[in-house]
């Protein structure tokens, strides 16, 4: 399953790229699974996703929660809590 991942703010800085294509294994079914998989995958992922509670996600432009399924997703955006205004 090819998936486009987009990173923002300090998640992007830790990952070293703004976006990338990934192919998580089939058992990665939810947003929480994906974050756990990225955290375990390499050192940059370990830094970016060390605290899953501080990560928010959107799937194809819609906000998601940890339990949201990623099957069929084109793009998953992963980012810290927002701080605009």
């Amino acid at each position: 399953m090819a998936l486009r991942l987009a990173y923002f703010a300090w998640v992007r800085e830790h990952m070293g790229v703004a976006e990338e294509d990934a192919a998580p294994p089939a058992e990665v079914a939810t947003v929480a699974d994906l974050i756990g998989w990225l955290a375990a995958r390499d050192e940059r992922g370990g830094q970016a996703f060390a605290e899953p509670d501080r990560i928010r996600a959107a799937i194809d432009g819609m906000m998601a929660v940890p339990g949201t399924k990623i099957a069929g997703a084109g793009e998953v955006a992963l980012f810290p809590p927002v701080t605009g205004g």
Binding site: A9, P81, V82
Partner: peptide, 23 residues
Amino acid sequence: LKTDVMLWKRETFSDGRVQWVEP
């Protein structure tokens, strides 16, 4: 718009510190 909009602030200070603003 401080809680619902995808925007992130990063501050740079004259002493060289750079930090992302925490909610």
